[in-house]
Design a protein around this nucleic acid. Sequence first.
DNA 1: GATGTTATCAACAACGATTGTCAGTTGCCA
DNA 2: TGGCAACTGACAATCGTTGTTGATAACATC
Lengths: 145, 145
Amino acid sequence: MKTVAELTERFRAQGLRVTPQRQAIFGLLEGNDGHPTVEALYEAARSEMPAISLKTVYHTVNDLAAMGEVELLDLGTGSYRVDPNVEHAHHHLICIVCGRVRDVTLDGRPPSVPARLRDGFSVAAVEINFRGVCDECAGSEESTR
Amino acid sequence: MKTVAELTERFRAQGLRVTPQRQAIFGLLEGNDGHPTVEALYEAARSEMPAISLKTVYHTVNDLAAMGEVELLDLGTGSYRVDPNVEHAHHHLICIVCGRVRDVTLDGRPPSVPARLRDGFSVAAVEINFRGVCDECAGSEESTR
DNA sequence: GATGTTATCAACAACGATTGTCAGTTGCCA
DNA sequence: TGGCAACTGACAATCGTTGTTGATAACATC
């Protein structure tokens, strides 16, 4: 994820304007290693800018995604999550209880499709999702049993 | 995927009723190696039972999923796809153009999360999605260029 | 600085996929 | 065969997301 200043530069270079709302969103994403939902980003943005609309947040993250500065993940948790980590190839640990997402980088090389099964299909990306229960949810499940 | 007769048996054993609508859906899924959307299943069911409702199809596939007889896949293509292949571990090739889904079984063992990154997270399932363009879509893109 | 063009903002409503409600019907077990 | 619980299907609600719109504000040029 680039800095707020770099993103401002890139937006201008693309002919997009840089508004206070957008800069607030840039700031929230910079160095954010969580994977906030758009809704969560919206809530965070509202705390420093109460008038911002959900639509603006969607618009901005879509622009960022179109420029390749973030990735929008649809991990089956019901809503998009914004992943600012696009520089390093990585995969995801997804908690099936709370929906939290964590990055993992794998040792070794990624799996590939056996040639005999490829059958004309050209693979552009390999996405690996580890689904399970995070430590926090495991703890609280334990205590409610 | 079990046969229609076996599914009928299992539904009864669970205290669920077996209606003509449900049997029609069982029949459509048996030996189906595509990954139909719920909507597609609905269309197919309607051709042999015009009065069936979309709600009934959703209800039935949800029951099947709860019993572990099918899996409902959310692969980011906008809607659920029904995967009747639950007996053999497999992964998916997903065409980013047409949304079609194909099964793949990998040689070698599945990747795992390095212990140093696991950090209390217990992995229950590994899901690998290969995204790319299928042969048919590659062909038609070629021709429209 | 001032100005005009044009993208952006935010309220509203639409959208598709999925699920809840509810009255009437029907399968299943005794 | 009877009775109950589960199912069906029409309708509408819900969720996350996106299109539309008049008003506003940022940018480049002067």
